[in-house]
Design a protein around this nucleic acid. Structure first.
Lengths: 298, 298
DNA sequence: CCTCGTTATGCTCAAGTTGAGTATATGGCA
DNA sequence: TGCCATATACTCAACTTGAGCATAACGAGG
């Protein structure tokens, strides 16, 4: 239910993000074009929308045939509640952790880090000439994956993907090397691959939203108007990929003025009925940076 | 000395940011093209570089003549130490607070807010129909400029510029309305204007760097390899536009592991000689988000 | 060489925040 | 009724922040 993102048009190799041409003439801004385009193609009305990053032709893995027009891609991140999408592209929701299994720490450290990533990074570092190049590799790996007591930084999603790409642990790396005519080394191919550079874009988006969470109440874009605190917490946990301390989470959002109780109860919880809360818009006026996440796990 | 940004080519109306065409073919990424371009045009080697935002034709104030090619502008933020720039465009350094006088709270609340902005926003709110539209305007103004006890959020530079534009308090607003054939209302024209939408871009950049400061040690890009703590503090203050408590700043950067003393002293300070410090790179490995925590950052 | 102004540095303290519990409440259901 | 599950309430120590007082060490001017 939580932790998913729209993706569409299964292609030759893997999933792709929804994309299409923009006509800067038709609307006043890119963002308006985007909203219209998504509504037409999927029936979804976007709420929160944020520009992510712009890539030029040569940044991208897809090789442009000689004579084809130059392509600039402007990637956007949008938050939508998970309604059923419609439309000709047959877009489908995907759990984003199928693309980034190493990002999901909700039940402890993911297996794949201990079993595959950490050893591979260790080998990769050891292949560098001894001394400072080797130290640099070790340091970079340590920072990205929180290896040697460095602590996991949930926001560094892009750092981690780029490192895995460089080290050759994701399929796109082999695909691109083969296309470039280089040696076609085979590695484990962690997580589901995506076409073109879409997995890189997705990593940018996930990192961005994890960061934003700390100082802007964007979670509420993904929830109905009212919800229990457990539901809110579950969504936050899906976003940051960490498990949070329940009592402290309640204290944080309640005394932080992010939510207010409605007085009504939801008794479908299985235990004691939970109070139903709503987002307190006034918090935007009261606090400088109203957000949710403390890196505290379990 | 501090608080400035490269701008070039005084044009018909005001300053402009350095800009030029990018050839995505010549370099592998936009960023490389940018670095090369800046080196050729100004002689400066960029250190930290970050993509800011991409604007389409119609986002921009400049009207494109019929038949002219479509233009997409990708704005970048770079941090450079203030060396003398060279080159054909005659670029010059500018204090950015001449463009945003309301952003400089280093000596208390800027006059222009109390004298001009707050009253104008109040009038603007009062012009809306009573009830919730009027309340929304009042709330928006309050959040942006920290008016009714809301507290100043240094990061909201873009919010503030856009509000002033909308309310008609910056010259660009009148320029664009006139061009669009609308009524040419005259207002105070706060701060120095810039051509096209460059002041908007600059606002985006200033906001971005202020935010980044909290969790990445970007300040050190603007300092020589060694420095006194006062020098470091002054640069941070210039960036965030606030004055900081000296003893606490020292405690923050020293016990936070951001800097380490060299044992040497600088006695050109006028009082007791200051110890000379350097950036501690290891902090990147040790802490999740090493940055300068500011008053009410969270 | 003594004093004063100036900047640097050291230290304290109260208030607030965080991390990690323990304890109690209240529903459904066997 | 009693058990299980979840919700909610409260506690407490460790740590962080905001603010200020106190002391150190230089140069300038008498």
């Amino acid at each position: 239910m939580e932790g998913s993102l729209a993706s569409a048009r299964d292609g030759a190799e893997g999933d792709v993000l929804p994309y299409g041409p923009l006509d800067p003439e038709a609307d006043r801004t890119f963002e308006l074009t985007l909203r219209r385009w998504v509504r037409e193609r999927t029936g979804l009305d976007l709420g929160y929308v944020e520009q992510l990053y712009t890539f030029g032709d040569r940044d991208r893995s897809a090789q442009r045939p000689v004579g084809a027009p130059k392509v600039i891609s402007v990637a956007y991140l949008a938050l939508v509640r998970e309604d059923r999408p419609t439309g000709p592209d047959r877009p489908r929701w995907r759990d984003w952790y199928t693309f980034f299994p190493w990002e999901d720490w909700r039940q402890d450290q993911p297996e794949v880090i201990r079993r595959t990533i950490a050893p591979a990074l260790s080998t990769w570092a050891a292949q560098a000439p001894r001394g400072s190049p080797r130290e640099e590799r070790r340091e970079r790996a340590g920072i990205a994956f929180g290896l040697e007591g460095a602590g996991w930084d949930a926001d560094r999603v892009l750092d981690r993907y780029e490192l895995l790409y460089e080290v050759g642990l994701v399929r796109e790396a082999h695909r691109d090397r083969k296309r470039a005519g280089a040696d076609p080394t085979q590695g484990p191919g962690l997580g589901h691959a995506m076409d073109m550079d879409h997995r890189r874009i997705l990593a940018t988006g996930l990192g961005r939203i994890r960061g934003k969470l700390r100082y802007r109440p964007v979670v509420f874009e993904l929830l109905p108007g009212t919800f229990t605190l457990l539901r809110l917490q579950t969504v936050v946990e899906a976003l940051v990929g960490l498990r949070l301390h329940k009592q402290n989470f309640r204290r944080l959002v309640e005394s932080g003025g992010l939510v207010e109780g409605t007085g009504k109860l939801d008794s479908r919880t299985g235990g004691r009925p939970a109070e139903i809360f709503r987002f307190r818009r006034e918090v935007l006026r009261e606090r400088r940076a109203p957000g949710v996440v403390l890196p505290g796990s379990r």
